[in-house]
Design a protein around this nucleic acid. Structure first.
Lengths: 104, 104
DNA sequence: CTAACGTACAACCAAATGGTTGTAGATGAT
DNA sequence: ATCATCTACAACCATTTGGTTGTACGTTAG
């Protein structure tokens, strides 16, 4: 999880993720889209790959990058659980209030 | 968004978030739960607060920390959009395939 | 075959992160 | 009034991060 959220905590990487979800792209194609060195983009892709948000597939001399929706789903599930925890607390408070009201 | 995901990219902070979503807690109560200095936990809370994942409310000499589900929802929405982008691509591919099949 | 392209990786640097200790100001309890 | 508690914040440190340049290597094109 650390690596997933850390990978998402950068605008360039989120943009790379967006692009590669919408359609495959080679590393150099991605690099052309940003105002930074090829190596920098390569590192961003590596971070995304390390988090499992993206996969690389050799195709001739290129490496095609593909976004991976499963990992996004994992992150979303965690956030969902947090929202559930919060709702459970509100429900407890509501129940308590109902109980108090009832006794009056 | 950077700050939200960056705040979530740490197990201690995610745990603090979980606790404060489930029920309010003062900074010192939180600090007691982890094997690190009070100041370290204080910094983690500050990062969460900076991301809007948590709010602090003075109550006497204590600062009560409360998890904020709205910001979690914002993060979830972004991830949702990414999944939609991916699904849109799959739909396009499906449509293309259907078209090709049809012509044969 | 040779030249150009796409990628990988190392070395380096500045800035940010995650931790520490120490000091000081409010507030509450005795 | 004094003492203990809770918090804030600064200074410091090691490590990680996000960027750079340079070099090397496999693959494709001419």
């Amino acid at each position: 999880m650390d690596r997933i959220f850390r990978a998402l905590a950068d605008a360039t990487r989120r943009d790379i993720l967006r692009r590669t979800l919408s359609g495959e792209a080679s590393v150099s194609q991605l690099a052309a889209a940003y105002d930074m060195s090829f190596a920098a983009v390569q590192k961003h892709v590596a971070v995304l790959e390390g988090a499992g948000l993206v996969t690389k597939h050799p195709q001739g001399r290129e490496r095609v990058v593909r976004g991976n929706p499963e990992t996004i789903e994992r992150a979303k599930s965690l956030l969902d659980r947090y929202e559930q925890i919060w709702r459970a607390r509100i429900d407890r408070l509501d129940a308590l209030l109902a109980d108090t009201t009832e006794r009056q």
